[in-house]
Simulated scan of single mutants.
Amino acid sequence: MADSHPVKTSVKVRHCLTPDVDGESVDQHLYRSMIGSLMYLTASRPDIMFAVCLCARFQANPKLSHLSAVKRILRYLRYKPKLGLWYPKTDLFDLVAYSDSDYGGYNLDQKSTSGGCRFLGNRLVSWQCKKQSTISQSTAETEYIAAALCCSQVRLIHHQMLDYGITFHETPILCDNTAVPHITKNPVQHSKTKHIEIKHHFIRDCVEKKHIQIVEVKTNKQTADIFTKAFDSTRFAQLVEMLGMINFQ
């Protein structure tokens, strides 16, 4: 891939990746080793997280179309080989989280993808991209589930920072869905929430105990968007910058 043509995004906007049952099979060991290497790289390159997780879903029976998608990630890395996270020491130490999801974005089983990231000041410290285990019946439900997953990661950081004598209160989780803050503050189960699994409702307890607070944010300011779906080159570049990544010369 050293002489390949570079691209500006890690995945096509309309990628349409499916199991491709009738497609040409490729070497499973090669495909899995490529995915494993890229998963290792996501520890310092969150900009490829969504693309790698998407391709990782087809490791059981990889096809040529899946291998092409993986090679596109390598072509993107060739376009930005020195992109990385910057951690300035003179910065704020406030914990802020972003939570987002797409709605039924995976065209095979109509399941949604949860994405989230946590910042200490302007320093990105953790992130995740995960396909939800159940099919959501509304955008409010899928955003609520994503917020609950993000909340568990925030609470983990809370406990870790206690070892250093640092305590956080009412950590904001920024979500671009209006319904989520209302659901977390309303303990009454109604027609829009009664079907949501009980395990996700622990976020209400965290809000009540003032561990976190759900704050609405505009979609164009939603940093976690990059972990849930594909974008064109302009929006993708904006999101990479919002992650605090810079190009090291």
Rank of each mutant, 00 (worst) to 15 (best):
G84C: 05
N177H: 13
Q222K: 09
P88R: 08
R123D: 02
L243P: 03
K194V: 11
R75D: 02
H29G: 08
S126E: 07
I212Y: 01
H200D: 03
K185R: 14
K71L: 15
D91Y: 05
D27V: 10
F58N: 00
L30F: 12
S65H: 04
T234A: 15
V154S: 00
L77F: 12
A69P: 09
D205Y: 10
I203C: 11
K194N: 10
Q213L: 10
Q160T: 06
A179W: 08
M161N: 01
F231R: 10
D176N: 14
A43L: 14
C53Y: 08
F119T: 01
A148L: 14
V26C: 01
G115F: 13
G104V: 09
I226L: 12
G116D: 00
V180N: 03
N122P: 12
A140V: 01
L64I: 05
T9K: 07
K185Q: 15
H169S: 15
T167D: 02
T184I: 04
P6K: 08
F58W: 07
K89G: 02
K130M: 15
P81D: 10
H201S: 07
T219A: 12
T193F: 09
T193P: 02
G104P: 12
F248E: 02
C150T: 15
S114C: 01
K130T: 15
K199N: 11
N122E: 08
P46C: 04
F58S: 05
K80A: 15
K185M: 05
K130V: 14
D176F: 00
F248Y: 12
Y76W: 13
P46S: 04
A237G: 07
K8I: 00
H15R: 01
K199T: 15
F119A: 07
A224E: 00
S191D: 11
C151L: 01
T178P: 00
A230H: 13
Y164N: 13
S138C: 13
Q222D: 03
N122Q: 14
A147I: 06
K89L: 07
K80I: 08
V125G: 05
P81S: 08
I183N: 00
S126T: 15
V240S: 05
A2Q: 14
Y144F: 13
E170N: 13
S65K: 13
T139G: 10
C150H: 01
H182C: 06
P88W: 11
K89H: 11
Y164V: 02
A69M: 06
C175Q: 03
S10H: 08
F248M: 12
D163W: 01
C53L: 06
T113S: 07
I196K: 09
G23V: 02
K71S: 03
G116I: 02
K63L: 00
G104C: 07
L67D: 09
K185Y: 04
Q238K: 12
D94F: 10
H66Y: 07
P19L: 06
S25Q: 13
Q132E: 09
Q132R: 10
L174G: 00
H158G: 05
K229M: 06
L38N: 03
K221Y: 07
H66R: 09
C175N: 11
H182D: 09
V240I: 14
H169D: 10
H159L: 02
V125L: 09
K8W: 09
Y87M: 04
I198F: 11
M242L: 10
D20M: 04
V125T: 15
G115W: 10
R78W: 04
D205Q: 12
Y106Q: 02
G23H: 02
T219W: 05
W86C: 12
F202N: 10
F248W: 14
M161W: 08
M161P: 02
